[in-house]
């Protein structure tokens, strides 16, 4: 498998993993390990000043994993830029998964605000990985604005519906000069393999792994699926035909032909 390069940094693993919804920090750490991932997303929230706060960052070895803070919760460009700056101040990391989701029901991204925030953040020296609807025109605009990747959604966040936007993602992959990361909605390893077979450069998975009965084993399953899909893409899939094409010889049958 060819390594993936984003903003000059090389990744062997093409599975990015989210850290939300895990039952414990220990389970999260073991799952990240099993996934083989080298890119790990985190969110920013207010400290609970009345209660003890877990330090989840301590469980992530930053020499092994690229930390990717997200701007989840941002409803417009200004909020996303503010969260990005806070994330950089908190971690020293200038990578950001830019997401602007004004509607809490479907959590679909606002393309206009995302483009506005991306333009500001690129100017401020951020490595911007925007989460977007599967819109090839927007993907191209974000690429031109200097984003390091584009991350179209397969289906709504946490919905586990799989590749509902497949046809549009195909166009994005065809046109993109930056890596295309399929993010959100991948519910099964087969969905991840499908995205990788199409030529996606990576996938980002959280809910399907974190809420599985055994997240560690599910992470392993996704790891294998991503590798399988990528190898298949690099090798080139055999073409499709409308009719059958026998796999066994069509001569030497045990009967006398008339």
């Amino acid at each position: 498998m060819k390594p993936l390069i984003i903003a000059g940094k090389e990744f062997v693993s093409r599975l990015f993993i989210g850290t939300g919804k895990f039952a414990s920090i220990q389970l999260m750490a073991r799952t990240i390990e099993a996934s083989g991932s080298q890119m790990v997303t985190v969110a920013l929230r207010r400290v609970d000043i009345e209660n003890e706060n877990d330090n989840m960052l301590a469980a992530i070895d930053r020499t092994r994993y690229q930390l990717l803070p997200n701007t989840s919760g941002a409803r417009d460009a200004d909020e996303a830029v503010r969260l990005s700056r806070l994330a950089r101040a908190a971690s020293g990391i200038n990578w950001v998964k830019l997401e602007v989701t004004p509607d809490p029901y479907y959590l679909l991204p606002d393309g206009e605000e995302t483009l506005k925030a991306a333009t500001t953040l690129v100017k401020e020296g951020f490595v911007v990985l925007p989460y977007i609807s599967a819109d090839p025109v927007l993907a191209k605009k974000l690429q031109d604005a200097g984003c390091a990747t584009v991350m179209p959604l397969a289906s709504p966040i946490g919905s586990n519906q799989g590749m509902k936007t497949k046809a549009s993602i195909e166009i994005i992959i065809e046109q993109a000069a930056v890596p295309v990361v399929v993010d959100a909605g991948l519910g099964a390893p087969s969905h991840a393999a499908e995205a990788m077979e199409m030529g996606a450069d990576a996938v980002l998975v959280n809910t399907a792994i974190a809420t599985a009965a055994n997240p560690v084993e599910m992470a392993r399953a996704f790891k294998m699926a991503v590798e399988a899909g990528r190898i298949a893409f690099e090798t080139g899939l055999a073409p499709k035909y409308k009719t059958a094409s026998a796999s066994s010889p069509l001569t030497g049958f045990l009967r006398n032909e008339p």
Partner: peptide
């Protein structure tokens, strides 16, 4: 004053 920290997220 806003006090903010990292939490799990996707």
């Amino acid at each position: 004053i806003e006090l903010i920290r990292f939490v799990g997220g996707g």
